[in-house]
Nucleic acid binder design. Sequence first.
DNA 1: CTGGCCATTTAAAACGTTATAAATTCAGCA
DNA 2: TGCTGAATTTATAACGTTTTAAATGGCCAG
Lengths: 354, 354
Amino acid sequence: MAAPSKPAHAEDSGSTAKRGKPTLRTIAEITGLAVTTVSRALSDAPQISLETRKRVREVADEIGYSPDRAAQRLKTGRTNVIGVLLDPHEEILGYGTSIMSGIAKALQGTAYHLIVMPNFLNKTNVEAVHYITRNAMADGLIFSRTEPLDPRVRLLSDLGFPFVTHGRTELSTPHPYVDYDNFTFAYQATKRLIAKGRRKPALISGPADFTFAGYLQHGFMTAVREAGCAYEILTGVDLDSPAGMIRDRVRQRYAEPDPPDSFMCGGEVCALATITGMSDCGLTLGREYDIVAKQTSHLLSAIQPQVETIYEDLTATGEDMGRVLLQKIGGESDVSRLQLLLCPQIPASFDAAG
Amino acid sequence: MAAPSKPAHAEDSGSTAKRGKPTLRTIAEITGLAVTTVSRALSDAPQISLETRKRVREVADEIGYSPDRAAQRLKTGRTNVIGVLLDPHEEILGYGTSIMSGIAKALQGTAYHLIVMPNFLNKTNVEAVHYITRNAMADGLIFSRTEPLDPRVRLLSDLGFPFVTHGRTELSTPHPYVDYDNFTFAYQATKRLIAKGRRKPALISGPADFTFAGYLQHGFMTAVREAGCAYEILTGVDLDSPAGMIRDRVRQRYAEPDPPDSFMCGGEVCALATITGMSDCGLTLGREYDIVAKQTSHLLSAIQPQVETIYEDLTATGEDMGRVLLQKIGGESDVSRLQLLLCPQIPASFDAAG
DNA sequence: CTGGCCATTTAAAACGTTATAAATTCAGCA
DNA sequence: TGCTGAATTTATAACGTTTTAAATGGCCAG
């Protein structure tokens, strides 16, 4: 445990005084102003004369000043950090990376940093949230896998701690969210299967815990009811199931009587696994059965062009979440402006005949 | 710009004095000791009597004290933050998520947080590194996509700033890294293709910029040379190419004379795209051709069991990188202890006859 | 010339921690 | 008794910023 002191990578070579990282004091000495004035000038306080503000900014730029985040944080209590609760268990292709890319993009140019809080040994997600708020580790929180009565949302709402969820809840207190319209997605996707002449679509839905699973199911049911056709909701597997399990389940289902003739898959992995299972049974996609799936990367349509897909742009979602959270932190109190329901883009091909 | 002051979520209700988040002062008042003593006691300084240390720790635990990171950081100059340079452009399945999960696991229980620095508008990666070191935004850095003469490595080595790369360099200054033995992987994978009776394996390698591409190539070449068979290194595409492009390239290649009869794919997406391309040409995996691929998720083998795969555990890699970086920061100066070459696990099935 | 008011600038304190140097206590011993 | 040194504790200052309250100087009405 050789404890190294302050980082060694800081050249020392000064003409007048010590020359480390420039601080407010450096600028103050150069301009002959007081530290306070410099601080104010840089934050464009109206009480500082326009001329002084300009001069200070110039000097600051010249010497490459950037404020010490630790000091700011200590003084103001604001961390300038946005936390993302990352779930290691994402079967959705590129979920984590895309979302984070998006958030990072929204944070570009702001004072905010993105920090990842993985949900590991932190037993439950609620505990992680508790920990973060108690220790003031971030100014805002972003998380996904939202449940209808999500306890994290409850907690954060109670505390008045800013957050955005990916997905809606059914709680009475409205809160900021960004969500994909999974109802419309499922509805359109299922209608498409029926339009192609399929008479018994099957749904592979999300884990029942999560809100979006309900929307998927609702959209699916609405479409099959409208058409008055048979349907099935595949049991025993969901979008979180590993590919091998979905594959086996599909295969097994086909050994039983009255199998479905098409699938509405909520994800790419699910679609690929389904195709493999069906193919093992000797059935060909586009001939004996069809699939419509949600796509979040560009893999599926490249690998299986036969699958019709509706694209959900997770990077854009992340960007929206970042933006919404910044607004919330910035004081926006009209929650309805902080709720975004992103509309699925239905491909033009969906209008064509089956 | 309604600037909210200090976070509102902090109950106020004190009997004796103000009761906010407990600080060293709180403990000092309770125990009747000086703040300095408390600080020392909590850091287990030998100069504080054992009894005092124990009592202070008890009180600290009781009132749920946790040190203010901002204050520590301001005072010590240490940030207790590990930064990951995340490249949005990862075609490797789950790369970002896996690596980060791993790092987070290694950081569990330490004082370190994981913060993501995406490489976006920060024009080049070197500039991002420059920015991070200049502004002391982290105590250590982790990044991937390492190049033989990686400028980031150069810069950080010069500055003496702790870092770990995923991948090796060819720079003369040794530095901490964690790498997968891609030579052995490629060598074994190619040998396997040849053992299965294939006579003209093709390699789809990584982008030429990156060090690992060279190792892949070297392993591949060693195997084909040993066997004295024909070979091909597919041009125009690499592991970063989108699936659709790889698919088309493979298809196109088969329209030309003397095509390869097997593929060594460095990634799952690549393998899937190759299969699709070949299938478009009417060729069946396992019959007209074979593939051995590197797998980093569990998707490929579930979808295409015909593909023989060698698994690279990216989460474990992340964990190793985290551990190594902590050691480096902790003062370990024997670089050779900070260099890990992870050995591919060759499946037992590779020994069986083709 | 005094007093008051404005615009602008400033000094001092504080955030919570750690480092430096000094103080306190007490035992051992001349 | 008084001195030395070890063991333990403490006061003070500092990190870089923002906040609060106060100071400065100019200008005009009285």
